[in-house]
Every structure is written in C-alpha cells, then in structure tokens.
Design a protein around this nucleic acid. Sequence first.
DNA 1: GTGGTCTAGACCACA
DNA 2: GTGGTCTAGACCACA
Lengths: 126, 126, 126, 126
Amino acid sequence: MISFEKFTMMDDIPIYQQIVLFLKRGIVAGVIADGDELPSRRVLSTLLGVNPNTVQKAYRQLEEESLIRSHSGAKSFVVLEGGRAKQIKAELLKNDVQSIIHAMKQSGISRSEALGLMDTLWEEGI
Amino acid sequence: MISFEKFTMMDDIPIYQQIVLFLKRGIVAGVIADGDELPSRRVLSTLLGVNPNTVQKAYRQLEEESLIRSHSGAKSFVVLEGGRAKQIKAELLKNDVQSIIHAMKQSGISRSEALGLMDTLWEEGI
Amino acid sequence: MISFEKFTMMDDIPIYQQIVLFLKRGIVAGVIADGDELPSRRVLSTLLGVNPNTVQKAYRQLEEESLIRSHSGAKSFVVLEGGRAKQIKAELLKNDVQSIIHAMKQSGISRSEALGLMDTLWEEGI
Amino acid sequence: MISFEKFTMMDDIPIYQQIVLFLKRGIVAGVIADGDELPSRRVLSTLLGVNPNTVQKAYRQLEEESLIRSHSGAKSFVVLEGGRAKQIKAELLKNDVQSIIHAMKQSGISRSEALGLMDTLWEEGI
DNA sequence: GTGGTCTAGACCACA
DNA sequence: GTGGTCTAGACCACA
C-alpha cells in the first residue's frame, strides 16, 4: 500500500494536482513501483482531510495517463510499463525548467542571460 | 509582525533552512518588508512545533546574512537595505537552477541537451 | 593533526568563540598551516570536556569564514589561501584595539587622552 | 576569603605574575575589596598546584606594591586606600596598550597608522 | 568512523 | 519578557 504520510499540502497548486505530483515523484524516486496498491478514494480523502471528489479527480487523471488502473468495486493499482518511469522523470524535469523559465521572464532576464547562467552553473558544479 | 501561517514543513531540507527560505521568499514576494517584526524564538518554535534551538539557528543565519537584526533582550526586525531584495531574488533563482542542473546531471543529460531544452522551452512559452 | 594541548578555557567568552580564537591565533602564530587536519567534533569535545555541539558551533563558524573545510563523512582540514593569515592577524588586532577602546570609554577616558596615551607609549617602547 | 576558583593558568607569562594580575583584575572589577582575606601561601599553592615559593613571590610583589599586608604568622589582607583601585585600573590599561603597541610594531604598522586605527575605531563604536 | 541536524531543556545577561 | 550559550544525547547520510 502506497503511504501518503510524507504528503505535505501546499496552497499554490490545486490539491488534486498535488496528489498526482506526489505519485509521480514517488515513481521517479523509486518508492512507488509497478503493482503497488493505492488507498481507496474514501480512505485517502479522510486521510488528507479533503473532499472525496478531489481524490477522485486525481485518480482519474492518473488513469487517463495510464499510470493506475481502477476496476470499479475493486482496488486500484499502479501500472508502470517499461521505460515509463523515465518518461515521467523527463516530464517532471520539463515542468521544473518551465517554472524556472517563467520566474526568469518575470525577473526581466533575457534568454541569452538565462542560457549563460545555466552554462556557467553547469560547469561550476562539475 | 510577520505571519508564519502559510509555512508548510517539508522533510527533505533541514527545518532551519526552510525557515530561512520562507523569509527570503517572503521578501522576494514583497510580503515581508524592511522593519517588519519577527516573532520571538520561543513563540515561533511553539507555533511551528519545533525546538527553540532550530528557530535560533535559522535566525542566526539570517542575522549573519544581515537580513534581520537581533539585540539581546529586544525584539528582532527585518533589515532590508536598497537593492537587497533583488540580490536575494537572484540568489534564490540561482539555487533553483542549480538544483535542476543537479537533477539533470543525475538523469544523464548532457550540457548541450540541457541548454537545448531550456532554449526550446523558452521559446514555447513566449 | 592540530594540537589543543595549550588550549586554556576562560569563562568570560563563549567556549565556541574561544575555540575559534584558538585556531585563529595558531594561524597567526604560524603554528597552524594550510592543510592541517582538525580533530573530529567528537574527539575534541571529549578532549576539552565540552559538549559536541559546542565544538560543532565553533567549526561551523570557522567553515563559514572559509578557514576550514568539512565534508560529511570525511575529516576536516584547514584552508588558508594566500594572504589570509595576514587578514586574520589584522582582524585579531582590530578586536584587541576595540576591546581596549571599550575599556577606556568605561573608564571615562576621552578620545584625545587615549590617542595621547598611545602616542606616548609608542615612543617609550622604541 | 578571596576565591581563586576562576583563576585559569596561562603558559605565556610567569605564574607568579598571573597571580598578581588576577588580584589586580579582581580589584579593578570590584570583586576584591579593602580588607579581604587572602588564602595562606600553603593553601593557595596546593589549590593552584604550584610551588609555595611561586605564591610567595606573588604575595611579596603585592606587598611591595602595598596592595596586601602580611603579618608573619598571621593572615594576609588586602589594603586598598582611596583612589588606589583607579590607579591599578590605569596601570592595567597601560599594560594592555603597551602589549598592543608591541604587536603592532611586530606587524610593521607605523605609528600614524596605529593612531589612525584607534581614531577610526573610537568613532565607530560611538 | 565522519559531519549535520534536531530535541528538550537549563541558565545567563539585558531591559 | 528578549536573545545567546550550553548540555546531553539521538538520529541521519555519507564513506
């Protein structure tokens, strides 16, 4: 059973997306693997203190991305086909880069400055 | 008095650094300004459910960075000289870029791929 | 390995600052040089009969001043780049002058009297 | 009875002078006053773990400076006539200034630089 | 082993 | 009240 103990709620993104992200990060970190069982909507919603519909929305998106499989009346499980974890890793990375780009643009940083910064810092950290 | 209501604890960075970050992000966001009063070590520690020493460690680092000023027996205040907020903004941004670079390196992404990704995503988001 | 045999505890300054001072004086005196190995926190704390945290606090300050370098899991070493010893010498001297000035002010000595005293004594000692 | 609990031995000045200094500093600090009783030579020597002659030498100098009075076979007492404490304060201060001047000369600092430093630092500390 | 973080609490000086 | 220092110890990651 996947543990949501380490889940910490933030208030700047929709909760259902936070649940989705939590799962994806767990997959990337290797904590969540193919075949793992998910808590039921009811259980998780009371655990997180949120509306069951919020959890439902998260599970639905995960199902649309084929990351979990739910059989009505039965338990839900994680489905991770080969190479899928890598894909998600790339997806999360892309999101992070995009949010940094967003912050840079708002700071008035130019594209060349941004590339220069990344180039410099890349080297620094060897 | 600076509010810590929106403070959410995470478990992957030391708590004292989270407190430091919270303050810095508040400064960058413009929620925290020069002259703002900080809660006392004791007050904040009980509020966060954390040991007073942990808060003390955070406050100390902030004072070493000249972001707050503490006088024994008196309250502590934020000190923000001209242009300091911009500096911090740049510092936080740099940290974000560095952590992304770290993640990329661990994913086996090359420098040119990283620069290419940023270049592409920069344009996309126009 | 740096020897702390000659370390003598005083009770008017915080212990962690005494450890910092001891190192700095050793550097200025030329007894401690670049690359010297420091005793571990645990070892030094039992040697001085002091809590490990107190030593940790001293080492941390030294690291923040870039005088030592600590890597988790590895030993700590002194780092002295060119000209750094001279800087520290000047710093210690400044501290001494400041504490004397403090004493003078508390004795009700005026600035001109202080300068006169120093001027006179300077000549005497030729 | 004057307490020597806070006495800490240093190894760069003769012990008997350290004892003399300890008394004088106590007088300046107001911890030691006129009429205070001194521990006997024997008692103090065992307490400090030094030779009785060393204590004797210290007491002798103090007597020569009329700071204590010893009646053979009887106890020794501090003698502080009016204004004497101030004199000692000035004497100790002078010593401190001299030792700083000594350090400065060895650092190759010129007289005018020294006076300039003191002048600057005097103002800084308001 | 090493350094780093944290708890739970005491005691101090300052005001 | 406030901040600052310190103890006694636990637990963690890294190597």
